[in-house]
Design a protein around this nucleic acid. Structure first.
Lengths: 228, 228
DNA sequence: AAAATCATTAATCATCTGATTAAATTGTTT
DNA sequence: AAACAATTTAATCAGATGATTAATGATTTT
């Protein structure tokens, strides 16, 4: 019979190693992370890392998937909710994302790194529940698009814009902050501002008249100065 | 006296190693790249990599800076041009960026990786000429903002949006393409569409009435939840 | 063509790194 | 407390990796 103390203690150091691993991985990326870094960060012996998790890669997978699933679960419900209107969903989604990203600014870069290193691993394990094809918000989005005569423009553009304006600033924040001498607090304040702004911008884009049919060809002489 | 053949031949293999290095670095990132990968990719012996460049890191710096400076120079002139109007500049900038990114989709990730690994190296060497503080477009932007009563909203938001909507899709394209089963060609076509769309969106944002003046102070109790 | 310089290669070194092992320590059960 | 199992550690291994070296080939200079 397994005693409580036993498992509890194991879980404790196991958890501490995972947390240390999460910190180091998120900061340095998988390739640049040494198992010794994790050992040191956790305060435990190097061998324990292989005792609890079989390898560096397995530890990475576990940490990674946990981190992602926390977030995925936190928004899956919202996306599939049938009561909330689309604009409200967008507002909540942006707000939720920004909160998460302020608390965990390294995650996007982390995810990108993995997506670039080996796409399969991530998508198959995490992406399952939030594939997008069967989410209710997708139906809402498409309905709205057709209702507003937006057939001419691919709805994916607006989705791209939503994600871009929300996530990209966090990804680029090291560069941005360096160029503008901005503190982390100031940056975060900007991002909180965006909780209101982004939904408004997206809304404006959705309402935007698509001046598509109008000028297929402009007789302007010097229209395109340099296409290169 | 140095003979032509000499330098030409040297430059040739030196250049080939750099190109191989660029390919491998861009694809795998600095930490995951092995000098042997570069040697193999270039077709030359491993030792030549240290013969021409003193170390892996120096080779990386050189390749990296070259790549960046090509792009920086290609837009610096545009940004400082005093004739082109702001909307036209935006249009040209987006177009230029998207062309560059289609030709070189790995670059943003590459830059991010370095920005996260060691910020100083990049900014000091490359960022010098395009610091942003002294670019004419900045003046134009600020003038436009004040002229249109946009003082209430930080102009940096619109700059963020411009960069986000242009660059982020490329960064996230591995994920996006995987989720939507999109081919590279289809993705690129989308991006070319955005050459027209993004300037229009930005324009709409700039014209947008800022419904700001309303609540300057909110008696909300839980205003600052967690500054951390 | 001999000498000298440059380019290239195979072999090797020293270190780093992920993983394993065997012993020591701690905790639990009988 | 003896026996047993779980946890932790120090030491070590095997392979990877960045770099160097010494020898060979090629090209230029004298």
């Amino acid at each position: 019979m397994k005693t409580k103390t036993d498992t509890e203690k194991s879980a404790s150091t196991e958890e501490k190693i995972k947390e240390a691993a999460r910190r180091v991985f998120t900061q340095k990326g998988y390739a640049a992370t040494r198992t010794r870094d994790i050992a040191e960060e956790s305060g435990y012996n190097l061998a324990l890392i292989n005792y609890y998790f079989r390898s560096k890669e397995k530890l990475f997978d576990i940490v990674m998937l946990e981190q992602l699933q926390i977030f995925v679960h936190s928004i899956a419900g919202l996306l599939n909710d049938r009561e909330t209107t689309l604009p409200k969903k967008i507002e909540l989604l942006v707000s939720h994302y920004i909160d998460m990203l302020i608390a965990n600014p390294g995650l996007p870069f982390f995810i990108l790194n993995e997506a670039y290193a080996g796409p399969e691993k991530l998508f198959e394990k995490v992406g399952a529940g939030v594939a997008g094809q069967d989410l209710y918000i997708r139906k809402q989005w498409l309905e709205f698009a057709t209702a507003h005569k937006m057939n001419t423009i691919n709805p994916i553009h607006l989705f791209m814009n939503l994600m871009s304006m929300t996530v990209f600033p966090f990804i680029a924040s090291p560069i941005l902050r360096n160029k503008t001498n901005m503190s982390t607090d100031a940056f975060n304040a900007l991002m909180v501002e965006r909780k209101k702004l982004i939904p408004a911008w997206i809304d404006a884009m959705m309402q935007m008249p698509v001046k598509q049919s109008a000028p297929p060809k402009i007789p302007k002489s010097k229209q395109k100065g340099e296409t290169k």
